[in-house]
């Protein structure tokens, strides 16, 4: 099949960008979306043009590297699928596709479809962990964890940090991402000691990164390749409001807040 692509091209973060039109010819329905772009790029290189830059690594939907908008939907039309796992059989001959990078102030475009998502790392660094010095852990079975809690924690922990939630959100909010980590750790007994501090610091960092605020719209949940539920945001709100209201010094003044 043949497709028409409109791709955002931007040479670097500080350069202006624009949409450019490309033809993708003889696309096999068995190709993944990224393989289709590989073929387009091989042709561009042969023609002496600059290939399209896009982020990718594992190409099996788990590393979270890939992702861009296809016709206004993060990761494209198939639910629960990253672009690397999206296959061309989801499209039909003659389709016209618009490819755009994630758009958010916190995710500046580096080149073409590639953005900088280090804001996510800084949110994790602010509190998305359980402090357990190497070597200090008690036996793995010392603290039983109810299966339901463990399963729910796993649901939240499945987040791959791709950024689709932010890209899809009309507010460019990172609530699903931060809520997922706060839920994952907050649901486990091991995560209780730092629960208040975690919520306070992570939420403060989300704001410092200039993500938008959540207004419970639900676009994020719909595009999340790992089906992280909106419930994680409610849990973050609860943890944050509680910790913030109590304000019992879980976060020292000089540590932020």
């Amino acid at each position: 099949m043949n497709l028409t692509l409109h791709v955002w091209r931007q040479a670097k973060a500080s350069a202006p960008g624009r949409m450019e039109r490309y033809e993708a010819k003889d696309v096999s329905p068995d190709m993944s979306f990224l393989e289709m772009l590989d073929v387009v790029n091989e042709k561009l290189i042969a023609d002496g043009k600059t290939p399209i830059t896009f982020e990718h690594d594992c190409r099996e939907g788990i590393c979270g590297s890939c992702g861009f908008m296809i016709n206004g939907v993060a990761h494209g039309p198939k639910s629960g699928t990253t672009v690397c796992q999206l296959h061309m059989r989801s499209f039909k001959d003659g389709d016209e596709l618009y490819l755009e990078p994630w758009r958010a102030k916190a995710f500046p475009v580096l080149k073409d479809l590639m953005v900088d998502r280090n804001a996510f790392d800084r949110i994790i660094a602010a509190g998305g962990y359980i402090t357990a010095r190497t070597g200090s852990a008690p036996d793995g079975n010392a603290i039983p964890v109810p299966k339901a809690s463990s399963d729910q924690a796993m649901d939240a922990a499945a987040c791959i940090g791709c950024g689709a939630c932010v890209a899809a959100c009309p507010n460019a909010s990172a609530a699903l991402f931060s809520g997922a980590k706060i839920s994952h750790l907050g649901l486990l007994p091991q995560g209780q000691a730092e629960r208040e501090r975690r919520a306070l610091r992570m939420v403060a960092q989300v704001k410092a990164e200039q993500f938008g605020n959540c207004t419970n719209i639900g676009e994020c949940e719909a595009v999340c390749p790992k089906h992280i539920p909106l419930a994680v945001i409610a849990r973050m709100n609860r943890d944050y409001l509680k910790a913030s209201w109590k304000d019992r010094g879980a976060v020292k003044q000089d540590e932020s807040a």
Binding site: G72, A106, T215
Partner: peptide, 23 residues
């Protein structure tokens, strides 16, 4: 805050997953 969070918008954006009321 919302407006500051996305200074450059999309050429195409499909928000059909959420409810009209919410949007």
């Amino acid at each position: 805050i919302k407006n500051a969070a996305r200074p450059v918008g999309y050429v195409k954006k499909n928000n059909s997953h959420s409810s009209l009321a919410a949007r």
